[in-house]
Structure formats: C-alpha cells, structure tokens
Amino acid sequence: MSAQDERTKTAGSSAVLLICFLVGLGASLLVGWVIFPALLYSEKEQPIDFSHVVHVDAVGDCEGCHYFRDDGSFSGIPDLSNCAECHEEAQGEDPEELKMIQEYIEPGKEIPWMVYSRQPDCVFFSHAAHVKMGEIECKACHGMIGESEHTDTYEYNILTGYSRNIWGKNISGLTSNTWESMKMGDCGNCHDEHGENNACFVCHK
C-alpha cells in the first residue's frame, strides 16, 4: 500500500467520519427539536369552541366573566352558573352554543375546561396583588387570548401534566413577550425587576 493510497484512504475515511458525525448531529437535532417536542406534548380539544371576541363584545371587558370575589380571590374560569346567566336559552344558532346548553347547562354539569395557564398545586398566585395593586394588564401574562375567536388546542406535557403554555410554545424556552411562558423563573425575574419580594412563601403554598 502506497503513501498516496494511504492518504486518499485517510481523507476518504475522514470524510466518511465527518459525514457520520454530521448524520449523528443532524439526527439528534431532529430528535431534540422536532420529534421530542412532538412526543412530549399531547393534544386535546376544549369541550366547547369558545369565542372570546364575541364575549368581550357582549360583556365589555375581562372582569365581566373573570371577576374578583368580595374576599379578594379571583374567580378564574367562570362556573356553569355564570354561563347559565346568559345562556339559559340559546342566544343564537351556533351549534357550539347549542351543544353547551344540551350537554352542560341542562344537565347541570360543569364544563371541563382545560386551563392554559393552570399552575401546579404548590403555587400561590394572587391576581389581586398583580391586577389590583400592581395594575398589570391581563395581557401581560395571558397574552392575546381575549382576541381569540376559537379556542386553541390544549397541549399538555405527558410527563408533568402541565399545560404547554407554562413552558411556552417555543421549545427552546426563548421568549420575546412576557406572556409566552409562565415558569417560576419568569415570575422571579419580573419580581426582581420591580424590586418585589422573592421569598418562597410569596408564591408557594
């Protein structure tokens, strides 16, 4: 075997090795960035296709349905009774509305909404502190949900059960808007920026 051959062979094998490396790199990037997120999150549709736009037009603002109770607690997603106040009888001819009346309001069954922003049980979050005292807009955390005409598909993490909105739609965890992720770090950073208390019990229970 000549040196020339040797070199050609080495160069050839280096190229092959590089290709192997790149294939590995490419495959793993594909796995990490595409396949893994697809496996990690499952999807569910909300029980009723709900239009925020229609309701904000009719009610006027967020607080019409998502209101503060007298004790300062936040009502969150409205109960069936709140819905029934207007929808005891059909307001229009939307099949989704009829479905809600037939399947939930008439039998008196709560609608099993899936909450995009649901935090785990160990989290204490005070809407009063942020909205009433901090004067932070709903949008700052919940984004443009008030402008949605249809409910988004609810994606949840199959390991943790968390809604995908907690980590954020972007699997990299990078965000450009405050409402794109709701992890503890996001809360902490905002508290730091505003000189707010970051002791554990402020947000945990």
Partner: peptide, 12 residues
C-alpha cells in the same frame, strides 16, 4: 459524538 453534540444543543 455528533448525536451527543446535537442533543446538547437541543432542548431535550
């Protein structure tokens, strides 16, 4: 090695 490097630079 490539896979390792790729995984490190992926969120997985």
């Amino acid at each position: 090695l490539g896979a390792g490097a790729g995984i490190t630079f992926s969120p997985l």
